[in-house]
Amino acid sequence: MTTTTTGPGHPAGGIYLLAAHPHWRDSRVNWQLMQAARSVPRVEVNDLYSSYPDYAIDVQAEQARLAHAQLLVLLHPIQWYSMPALQKLWLDEVLSYGWAYGGGTALQGKDCWLVATTGGPERSYHPQSYNRYFFDAFLPPYEQTAALCGMRFLPPLVFHGARSASPEALAAHVDVFRQRLSTYPDWPELEDLAECASCEVPATDRPHEHTEA
């Protein structure tokens, strides 16, 4: 596994960053963001596509890393209005019933932060443009995933127009990202952020937890 850890070990209250990009060679922004994260103490960076090229995720290892972190960062490009395939598989397998939700409280009280990029400019995410919706319309699956696990969904950091942004704009964004990681959890806006909603799953909704739908 090519997971990279910075800082002394895996201290509780640290940051676990999942970087998911199927083609790093073509990445203009996410690669720089991942490298910036590796320079910040307390941040453990996992390049998912390098760690699991066969898509065989080590669920126990991933759950152990999550258990020791206070902040989970999802770093990836938006692909077809969602996340890359391996990132979705990670959620499916690691956030298991009885551990992350449905009576499981392993992630209760932790934070989840989406750091994403889009190829299209911000103006393309508008009812009068080709993406037809404001970008916020694509966030509910992320928000509800966090809520079901008892996590706070922090305001996302999104970089639009990754293909056409100027080098200066990109450098400024990377600096903001590095600063945010370095100062977590001392973000002023977190003081006013409500606790996540209670999303208890009734046992009657999962009478046979090992049976597929």
Rank of each mutant, 00 (worst) to 15 (best):
Y97P: 00
D136Q: 06
D186T: 01
D175W: 00
M83Q: 08
C196S: 15
A203I: 02
V59P: 03
H76G: 09
H173P: 05
A19G: 14
L190E: 05
E62H: 04
Q128E: 11
E122H: 05
R178A: 15
W80E: 04
Y81T: 09
S96G: 13
T6G: 14
R123H: 14
A147C: 08
V40N: 09
G7E: 04
A69T: 11
V174I: 15
F177W: 10
V115Y: 06
H23S: 13
A20V: 02
L66F: 07
M151D: 08
W80S: 11
T5H: 02
R180C: 07
F138V: 08
G7W: 12
L170H: 09
Q87S: 09
T5V: 12
Q87H: 12
W80G: 00
P167Y: 15
Q79I: 07
V176T: 09
Y125K: 03
Y49K: 04
P185W: 08
A172G: 01
E44T: 14
A171Q: 11
L48G: 09
C199A: 10
L18T: 06
D54A: 10
T2Q: 10
V59M: 02
H21W: 11
H160R: 00
R132P: 04
R25A: 09
Y125C: 11
G150K: 04
R123T: 15
W90Q: 08
V174C: 12
E93K: 14
Y130T: 04
H76F: 09
L181F: 14
T183R: 08
A197H: 03
A203M: 03
E212L: 13
L157C: 08
Y130D: 01
E212R: 13
S39Q: 15
C149H: 02
H23P: 01
P185R: 00
Q35T: 13
Q35I: 06
R123F: 12
R178I: 10
F159W: 11
C196Q: 10
A203R: 04
T4D: 13
P207M: 00
V174W: 12
P167K: 03
C199M: 15
Y142E: 08
P188T: 12
P11K: 06
F177C: 12
N30M: 12
R163C: 06
E168D: 15
Q79Y: 11
T183L: 07
A85D: 07
G150V: 05
F153V: 06
S51G: 00
P41S: 11
E200I: 02
H21I: 02
W113I: 04
H126F: 07
